[in-house]
Design a protein around this nucleic acid. Structure first.
Lengths: 218, 218
DNA sequence: GCGCGTTTGGTGACATGGTCACAGACCCGG
DNA sequence: CCGGGTCTGTGACCATGTCACCAAACGCGC
């Protein structure tokens, strides 16, 4: 059972805690594109991602979307979990972006671990910390940052070293919480300036340094 | 020492936990308008508010502000605390809106309590939960909601049953993360529609039901 | 009460972003 | 090749943010 060791390594857990996890947690495996939680779904487990990534996004009443953050390997959906358990008023949804392997830790085991393991506490609070930081930065972006700068940043992140991003304008709009038309217009301006070129469903970064300069301008 | 009992009641703590708090926590008392934490300030304490309210806001590079949330009696600044301790990258500041009485729980005692008291854990995670919900709603508002609706909502909240709010346009803009001119224009429209009237530094809600209808329209 | 600097609020012109309606380009199955 | 669905482009218009500037109200010292 390698996954307990994986978690243990990620969280720096002790032997007794590993035993508990081995007994009480379940490993799950889901394909890409699955909605793992959504509005109204009661989350009774702490979920720790071992492989892959989960995109957590919000869908507004009017149908527009915005990506709140992504949960990568070694991180948890703890915020949404706690949020849903305690209040259940808010609707965010999580969608797997790749095939995902994860472990689900039941609420009882979660609580017991919090009591018994300082390392686990640290793991959990670090996770909160990171998410809160993400959300603060997102609020700042949405409230005060120009859309062209946000688009440039997002393209660079999504490319992640590669020279292009396979994504539609609509999906980019959902990433940033704006409208497709806005993305189309901005990309056209980028194209005019030689920063990108594009085909249907794909953006090619022709001038990554230029995009980087733009993304740091604000 | 009544305050330990107050906290204990708020958090449902046991006798042993109360003793620990009595020994290790300190009570503080600050006047209105004090900046209790800010960019760069290292927070080595959990702060629990007993009386009054703290406004937590962010100041962007360009000088614009937005109010993230408020910490009322019985609640904690735990998010900012954890955030600053773990990453210290982000700059939010807390300002007392009224005279505030609070207790500061050192990190060591905080951690020990988390281990020993399920009630304390529940208190802490509820606090996180509430803040996260607040932030999600804020993101939704900022990204998708019309400004006139947000302004109407905020006026109603700030009035809190009273018939008027003592606040300047600039302060309202800082609440909502927008510019003063926008607030002025919207208030003029509200005035034209008979929803409010205003004097220097004061907004009178002439038609609270009308404002409420507007605030629910989005 | 008077003069004066500061704060607060009002206004017009313009840039950016969001909404709506619609058209053309592309893709894929039949 | 045809037809329907998806993706992208475009123009008009409204909402919001930015900038420059002014005027009214206030606080304060005299």
């Amino acid at each position: 059972m390698g996954w307990v060791d994986e978690i243990a390594e990620l969280g720096g857990l002790q032997a007794a805690d590993r035993d508990r996890l081995n007994r009480e947690a379940r490993r799950i495996s889901v394909p890409a594109g699955t909605t793992v939680f959504g509005p109204g779904a009661q989350a009774e487990n702490l979920i720790v991602v071992l492989r892959g990534a989960v995109r957590v996004q919000h869908v507004s009443d009017s149908g527009r979307q915005i990506v709140l953050y992504r949960v990568h390997a070694g991180q948890t959906c703890i915020m949404t979990t706690a949020c849903l358990v305690a209040h259940e008023a808010y609707s965010a949804e999580g969608v797997t972006e790749t095939a995902v392997e994860a472990v689900m830790v039941p609420r009882r085991a979660f609580d017991a671990l919090l009591g018994s393991s300082a390392a686990f506490r640290s793991f959990v609070f670090d996770a909160y910390s990171r998410r809160i930081t993400d959300l603060f930065l997102l609020i700042d972006d949405v409230a005060f940052q120009r859309m062209d700068i946000r688009l440039a940043q997002r393209l660079l992140v999504l490319a992640g070293g590669a020279g292009s991003v396979a994504i539609t304008h609509q999906q980019l709009a959902a990433e940033l919480g704006t409208a497709r038309e806005v993305v189309s217009r901005l990309l056209q301006e980028f194209r005019r300036r030689g920063l990108v070129s594009s085909a249907r469903g794909e953006i090619v970064l022709e001038d990554a340094p230029g995009l980087r300069r733009l993304s740091e301008a604000g």
